[in-house]
Amino acid sequence: MDRITRVWVYLAETPLLWLALTVGVFWVAQQIYRNARGFALLNPVLVSIIVLVALLMLTDTPYHDYFDGAQFIHFLLGPATVALAVPLAGQAAELRRAWLPIAAALSAGSLTAIVSAMAVGWAVGLTPETLLSMLPKSVTTPIAMGVADEVGGLPSLTAVLVILTGITGAVIGIPLLRVLGLRDPLAKGFAMGVAAHGIGTARAFEHSERAGAFSGLGMGLNGALTAVLVPLLVWLLGF
């Protein structure tokens, strides 16, 4: 066996290669994004996923082998979600003052996210499994997968649709709300969290700490509400 083959055999067997590549590719994608002054379509999550999917296809690596390495990063989602309480606690005074507007906006946003996905998805003729997998798309992956399973969607497809929704929200969110004349960082951030969960929240933190804090709040609250609303609406509307 020559040296290069030996190196490849070693790399293919350890989680190190894909762990290093995931972090490295994201770092490069973030540098590009910064140099492009935050050009929305160069969103580092989007670019990293495209590059890594291409690398997996080129090297004929199954997703399972990739995830063996990347799971160490995936695991940190848990502690990072818990950590969202810290910026939120910094906004406690505002939260106390604005709890009623927040509750109203949460209800409006959560219902709109689910019902509009039902209506548009039905109108464009999505297959039933895709449509059902789509309904919890605005909430964080673990909740969305559980909800999809409950209503007869495909949880692993839901995970993908959730990420695509987050990227969509991160890319269009701030420019869309700016064009519509919305300035308030509280409203912008909260909407990003309700519509586009953690990826929207990552984008909101780039905007400001205040927007990020309320985005984290929107993400957490909508996760809880969607878990109740999707099964209820599917039952009521007879999907």
Binding site: L52, V53, Y63, V120, L164
Partner: peptide, 30 residues
């Protein structure tokens, strides 16, 4: 935070057939 979503996002590779077949409907709905 963004980095932490990349491993799950790469999972799209397992659904490329379905996503490719319905890409327009999925894109419009999302």
């Amino acid at each position: 935070l963004g980095l932490l979503f990349v491993p799950a996002g790469v999972g799209i590779i397992s659904h490329l057939d379905r996503v490719a077949g319905e890409w327009l409907g999925i894109a419009v709905t999302l």
